[in-house]
Amino acid sequence: MIELTNTTSAEIAAEFVRARTRSGSPAMGMVLTVIVAVREDDATEAMAAAQAASREHPARVLGLIVGDGRGTSQVDAQVGIGSGWGGETALIRLRGEVVKHAESVVLPLLLPDSPVAIWWPTDHPADPAADPLGRLAQRRITDSAATTRRRTTALERQCAAYVRGNTDLAWTRLTPWRALLAAALDQHPIKVVAASVTGERISPSADLLVAWLNHRLRVPVTRHTSAGPGLTEVVLQSREEEIRICRTDGKLATLHTPGAPDRPMALARRGVPALLAEELRRLDEDDIYAETARHLVRMRS
């Protein structure tokens, strides 16, 4: 890591090239730029997660810490190339007037002609696509479950602000559940007349699952509260039978299906790097999330 104090985007870009040349491999194999808009306290963990995800998707990871807006502008950066992974990273700290123009620092550092993703690990703007940094990106990743402000309505606000390219890790967390439910219904094509979802009191994933099931199955879906962790139970009910998935420990689920013995299923909660890697796998519009988000807003209004 090279420390650059009171620096500029041009110097950061030059340092990337120098770092690559020093490592003996000036070629770039990176496929996208990931901006991490993060608070000082969460920076280390978030950068580590983004770097882990860039093992699967070699990326230039730009961490951006927006500090105090008073006083003279100053840009500081720690620049490095990955050892053991294919990407590059810069953790950039802004202070003073420049905090209002963060995008001017990032713009010159975007890799040419390749996609840009932005991730807000904790708090995110109310309308990510209208955010000056968010506007630079094709993929805007929020995490309604990790936000520290107005937690109960965070997801609903994200869904209301949905435009093409927005996505939320609460949705990503659902993929294994949705896969298991779809597979169970493949095997036991029961006529579902009602469904229920149980999870922690504040669980954006549970709320999204309710919306998804309600939208796809067009049956009433009830939401129940449990102690967690996360989602704990989903039931699809027909007149006579039911498909039920319970997971009380956040690791192992039990699948109850009609006419078959109860079976355990690995259904571990995934870490943030795995979730990010899934998000970065496809950068085109996620039609199903779009429908689900719009449906959630309709259900609440």
Binding site: D186, P189, R216, L217, I288
Partner: peptide, 8 residues
């Protein structure tokens, strides 16, 4: 299966 969608 209503939970399946080729776009998903």
């Amino acid at each position: 299966n209503p939970l399946r969608d080729p776009r998903d």
